[in-house]
Design a protein around this nucleic acid. Structure first.
Lengths: 164, 164
DNA sequence: TTCAGTGCAAACAGTTTGCACCGAG
DNA sequence: CTCGGTGCAAACTGTTTGCACTGAA
């Protein structure tokens, strides 16, 4: 598995994109990516349902819509979309990456994941204890959460300055 | 990769264990696990340095201490220790599980992970925004965090009740 | 002595890479 | 027409499983 947080700095949204497929396609072009049938289909799914979806779920949805697409192509396109800042990758610790539409109202948010059925809900708020209560109030039991911080430490910052 | 959060309910600490190897070994026995040389060595490392360590890091440390141990055995023992509630598994999204000693002062906490050198620091507090500031004040740049919630949704709770 | 613990080989799952062909611009 | 996009096969990484041997109790 790659390091999902390394893409962050690449994210570059061209124009102010909302939730329509047309805007997604503009974004594609602006990022120097060609408009293929596969990409159109993938973006349509992501814009409409915004995910997060695993690669397999995306493939199933493609097939349900009549398209076929090699799983490798989906991987490659998700990487493209993430680099283009249109899509965000999530890792819920169950071994597969998930991808969700990152533009419009879907900026920064968190998720509630059912440990049993893996259902995923979105959360807008962001203060931990309040939130665990909120999650309980939504009817979840055995609520727990995962929180980790990421950043560049001072040592690495210094090293980066030297290299420049 | 397994689902690290499924172990939570198994966690059962026997007696009030602190940070000594003797107590770790007591815990082993209380969990019905035999006291082998390998386990003794692994627990010594975890109690002394508390991690979080990847499986490979554990193997290296074992070798540095003169022991040898198949990587499969380390996997199996980490599962045992997690089930016994002595060790907690962490997933920082870089593709390998990490394990840290979970008893004594090392109860619930979070981490700051350097995106570049992968250095890991511990954090005790647990309110998100305050914390991102705190992390910045520690000298980290490009601070971000990962926060996800886990629980059993109402549907699954109902289903579980039926099955019983 | 007995069964849990271990090592080795092989299987597995998710993901990535190499290469030849295809199709958008 | 050209070069980026795609499919297929194969490699790779982290992890798990099967099985026979070994050693703790």
């Amino acid at each position: 598995m790659s390091q999902p947080h390394n893409h962050k700095q690449h994210g570059q949204v061209h124009g102010h994109a909302h939730g329509t497929i047309e805007e997604a396609l503009e974004n594609l072009k602006a990022s120097g990516l060609k408009t293929t049938r596969t990409r159109k289909a993938l973006l349509t799914i992501l814009v409409r349902e915004h995910g997060p979806f695993t690669i397999e779920e995306l493939q199933q949805r493609l097939e349900a819509g009549g398209s076929t697409c090699d799983i490798v192509t989906i991987y490659r396109n998700m990487t493209n979309f993430v680099d283009a800042g249109m899509v965000r990758s999530c890792d819920f610790g169950d071994g597969s990456a998930r991808f969700e539409w990152a533009l419009g109202e879907h900026a920064h948010h968190h998720h509630i994941i059912c440990q049993q059925c893996r259902k995923i809900e979105e959360l807008e708020l962001c203060v931990v204890e309040e939130l665990e209560q909120l999650v309980s109030k939504r009817g979840y039991s055995q609520v727990s959460h995962r929180l980790e911080f990421y950043g560049i430490c001072t040592a690495c910052q210094l090293q980066a300055n030297k290299t420049r």
